[in-house]
Amino acid sequence: REAFDWLMLYRKLRGGAAAVDGPADPFLSEASLHDVRLQPGTVYWQAQQTNLEYLLLLDADRLVWSFRTQAGLTATGTPYGGWEGPNVELRGHFVGHYLSATAKMWASTHNDTLRAKMSSVVDVLNDCQQKMGTGYLSAFPSEFFDRAEALTTVWAPYYTIHKIMQGLLDQYTVAGNSKALEMVVGMANYFSDRVKNVIQKYSIERHWASLNEETGGMNDVLYQLYTITDDLKHLTLAHLFDKPCFLGLLAVQADSISGFHSNTHIPVVVGAQMRYEVTGDALYKQIATSFMDMINSSHSYATGGTSAGEVWADPKRLAATLSTENAESCTTYNMLKGFPQLIQMDKGNSICGLL
Rank of each mutant, 00 (worst) to 15 (best):
E84K: 05
Q39N: 06
R14G: 15
A47V: 03
R37Q: 09
V43M: 14
P40C: 13
T109G: 05
G15V: 02
L52V: 09
A116K: 15
S119C: 11
N87H: 08
A101I: 02
V88F: 04
S120F: 00
T74L: 05
G41F: 03
W45P: 00
V95L: 14
G81H: 06
F94I: 14
Q70I: 11
T76V: 00
G81D: 06
T69S: 05
Q48D: 05
G82M: 11
D21W: 06
A116R: 13
A47D: 11
W106K: 01
S100C: 14
D5Q: 10
G77Y: 00
A24K: 12
W106S: 02
Q39D: 06
T50R: 15
E89I: 12
Y10C: 01
P79I: 13
P23M: 10
L55R: 05
F94T: 12
L73D: 14
M118I: 03
H110T: 13
K117G: 02
K104Y: 15
D25T: 06
E53M: 04
V88T: 07
L9S: 07
H110E: 12
D5K: 13
H110N: 07
V121A: 15
T78L: 08
A17R: 04
G72D: 13
A103V: 05
A75M: 04
L38D: 15
H97V: 08
W45M: 04
D5I: 02
A75D: 01
D35S: 09
G22E: 06
G16Y: 01
S32K: 15
G41W: 06
F94Y: 13
S100V: 13
L57D: 14
T69K: 07
R11C: 03
Q39V: 06
